[in-house]
């Protein structure tokens, strides 16, 4: 564990708490992509299968449980409790275009051709693009509630913090994880447009609005 990874994980944790807070306080999941949330459930379940057979640390264990639990809870809230506030007609990104290529990539790029390793690779690739339905939705509506933008910012920053973590680990431990690094850089890249608007508008107290 190092400082950058801890910051990344805390940012990830914060993003989920902000998301749940948004849903609870506004009693609505307006502006949120159900598809993105469903992809995160798939990401966490396929990546954290090792919970059942490998012990890393208490920190690792608790965080994994939290990520699986909270993503399932979010999905439940969106699907049942606040279902009427979710508008499927604007959540139209075709996730087949994400899941299919990620599955193929995972079959080609993995550290070992075993079920758990291929699923791990799949989860890394899928995570890197899971935000696309959400960003696509944002693009369509052209605006977002401020709390939703805080959620997205925290979620985007999380993987960005992992980049210095990987550099640090390379120099201190000699650990290199090319699959995670390439996917993590791509994942962070997807947020650049969003970050630009977030830091120049929302952080200055303005509403998040995309230019028409």
């Amino acid at each position: 564990m190092n400082f950058f990874r801890l910051l990344g994980d805390l940012s990830h944790l914060a993003s989920i708490l902000i998301l749940l807070h948004k849903i609870k306080t506004t009693r609505s999941c307006r502006g949120l992509s159900f598809k993105t949330q469903a992809l995160y459930v798939a990401v966490f379940i396929t990546r954290y299968l090792d919970l059942t057979y490998r012990w890393v640390s208490l920190y690792n264990f608790v965080m994994k449980l939290f990520f699986i639990g909270s993503s399932c809870a979010t999905l439940y809230l969106m699907r049942y409790k606040y279902c009427p506030t979710h508008d499927p007609s604007i959540d139209t990104f075709k996730i087949e275009y994400l899941v299919g290529p990620c599955a193929i990539l995972a079959l080609i790029f993995n550290y070992k051709f075993s079920v758990s390793e291929v699923l791990w690779s799949f989860s890394i690739f899928l995570e890197s693009v899971a935000i696309l339905p959400q960003l696509f939705m944002l693009q369509r509506t052209g605006e977002a509630e401020t709390i939703t933008t805080h959620y997205l910012a925290a979620l985007g920053i999380y993987r960005a913090f992992y980049i210095p973590n990987w550099i640090y680990r390379y120099f201190t431990e000699g650990v290199v994880d090319p699959i995670a690094i390439v996917a993590g850089i791509a994942q962070t890249g997807l947020y650049l447009d969003f970050f630009y608007v977030y830091f120049t508008k929302v952080m200055q107290g303005e509403k998040f609005e995309l230019p028409a």
Binding site: D9, H12, Y111, N165, D177
Partner: peptide
Amino acid sequence: QAKETPHDEL
């Protein structure tokens, strides 16, 4: 040469 990836990250 690559070490076996420990997958100790989240």
